[in-house]
Each structure stands twice: as structure tokens, then as C-alpha cells.
Computed example of a mutant assay.
Amino acid sequence: MLAVTADARAPRVPPAGGPVAVLANPGAGRGRHREVLPEVLRRLRDTRRPVRLLAADTAAAAEQACRAALADGIGALVAVGGDGTVHRAVQALAGTPVPLGVVPAGTGNDFAAGTGFPADPLAAADAIAGALRADRSRAVDLARMTGPAGATRWYGGVLAAGFDAIVNERANRMRRPRGPRRYDLAILVELARLRPRRYTLRLDGEPLELDAVLVAVGNCASYGGGMRVCPAADPTDGLLDVVIGGRFDRRALIRARPRIYRGTHVEHPLVSSHRARTVELTAEGITTYADGERALDLPVTVTAVPGALRLLR
């Protein structure tokens, strides 16, 4: 594996007709799309571009493989998997002109849906191949998170910083049961412990302090496989959508949860919505999740970065 040079992230024009790197997660979607990878690779190779499959067996290795491929001069990167796979690719590509293609093959494919890739993996591969042949890409925004010590993460979808993040943290600490039942059990455990927490926000410098059980900061509209938590979010408007669920009790939260799939929860009297370019967010004892992946502990500053990522669309 190549070492990443100091200027690997520096903007530079990708080589015309340069190699296409493919980052694939064979376990995405619990393996149900494993068989599509050979066909995706075939369709990409039909563009007459060299195609390189990146080897990575952990999330950290996936990020390193993407950074190394970028330093080696790839012309494009294709992520085959869900939002977690895309999240790893974005850490390398943010702020560079090297475009990303997304083949949605995961449990949650919210970024792909929010940015217009076809839901069918092979249809998405065809769309990406067409963009490669035409040397076509378009820019979308990303969100950049920064912690107090300077740690930085990028995300394309939604940052969860409330009950949803707490449930994810609980589920990730549990060893049993396996599969989706672990997440369901984590919801039950955290519902029993539900309490509003004190949040302090600054939205483009304007202070906001309140008690809440849900705080989401969206570049795109949905997370969790179609839950439209920030239904008005647009990844091309240069803004972040902030949706806050206030002092919900257990019963009210359970009743409101199905409305998130439709995006109508924002009409609830305990829910408020805001838009800002920069969001400063503080609360005690919260580890955030971005694109469904464990991210930074609060406090964080989230900034919308217009046109930070190019997509093969």
C-alpha cells in the first residue's frame, strides 16, 4: 500500500482517463448484494478505463486505501456499499476534484438516494459508467465537523446528536443479540432511560439553548434507510438543516417516530427546524453519529462546505 503524501488532499485535476478505484464492502446490506460486485466491475471496465479494486478489511483500512489511491493519481472512485462505505470514501475525496460514484448496496443508502443515484445497484453502475465515458461530474455540498482539539470528519448525509446517536452507541456496545434485533433492543433500553438533555447551539453565531431528545444536522434529508429526519435538506444549497425534537416523553416519541419516514414530524409542536451555514453544538455525554458511523464527541462545530464533493452523475 502506498504511503499518503503530505499534499495528497491538495486539489489537483484528476488525470484524463485515469484509473477508477473501487471501494467495496461485501458485507453491506448483510451481504445480499455481494453478487453484484463482479458485474459492477465489468460495466466499469467496459468504459476502457483501468479499474482497481481496493483491498480493505476494516473501516480504518478502507479510509487509508482511498487516501493511498488518491495519492497514486486515480481519476475517480466508486463506492459499492451503503452509507458507511460512502462515508469512508468521502474522508479522502472531500475538497478534491476526484469524483465519486455510488453503487447503493447497503442496508441504508440514504446519501445515494439524496443525491440522485438510481436505487438499483446495476442501474447505478450504468449511470456511473455513462458519466465516466462523458467525463461528466457535478458538485454537491458536504458537512465538515470539527472537534475542540481540531479533529475533523466529513459527512454527506445527517449528523445524529440525540436519542438516535445514544441508541447507536448502546447497540455498538452490545455483543448480543446479533443482527437488527440488537438495535431494536438498544431502542427499548434507551427508551426506558429517556430524558431530555440540555443543548447549547449557535446557528451562524445566534445562540439557542434548550432541552431536547433529538438533534439532527442534515446536509441530505434522510438517514437510517429512509427516515426523512431533515426533510427539507438540500445538498446543493450551501446550508445545513437543523431539526430539534424538544421535551418528548416516551409515549410521544414512540408515536412520532413513524412520521419521520414521511418527514411530517417537523409539523409536531415539539419539533423546530432551522437553517445555518455553521452550527456549534454542545451537550454532555453525547457521541455523534454521521452517515450512521461513529464520529466525534460533543462539542462540535459543523460547517456546510459548498461543492466539496464531485459526483459521477
Rank of each mutant, 00 (worst) to 15 (best):
L93Q: 07
G245T: 03
L54S: 05
D234W: 02
A143L: 04
T58S: 11
L142Y: 02
R153Q: 02
G292L: 11
A71I: 05
A10L: 14
R250A: 11
L191N: 03
C230S: 13
N219L: 00
A65M: 02
P38G: 04
S222Q: 12
L240G: 07
A192E: 08
R202M: 05
D120V: 04
Y155R: 06
G150V: 03
G263M: 04
A112G: 00
V36S: 13
R34E: 14
A94L: 00
L100R: 08
G18W: 08
P177H: 08
L201A: 00
A295Y: 09
D184Q: 15
R176Q: 14
I254S: 00
A16R: 15
D237Q: 05
L44F: 10
A16L: 15
A113L: 12
L44Q: 09
L281E: 09
T5R: 14
L159K: 01
A124V: 08
R32T: 15
P258C: 13
G263N: 09
V279P: 05
V80C: 12
L142G: 06
G18F: 07
C66V: 07
Q91P: 12
A55C: 08
A232F: 12
R136H: 15
A21K: 07
E206A: 15
R52V: 15
A256V: 04
H265D: 01
D184E: 14
G285Y: 07
R198I: 13
E267G: 08
Y155C: 01
E206P: 10
F248H: 09
R262G: 15
L100A: 04
R202Y: 06
I260D: 03
R136S: 15
R178E: 15
H33P: 12
G84I: 05
T85Y: 05
P14S: 01
I244S: 01
L54V: 07
V189S: 11
P15W: 08
D237F: 03
L37F: 09
R251P: 02
P258S: 13
A232C: 13
R294G: 11
Q91A: 14
L203D: 02
P118A: 10
G285M: 06
V4A: 14
F248K: 00
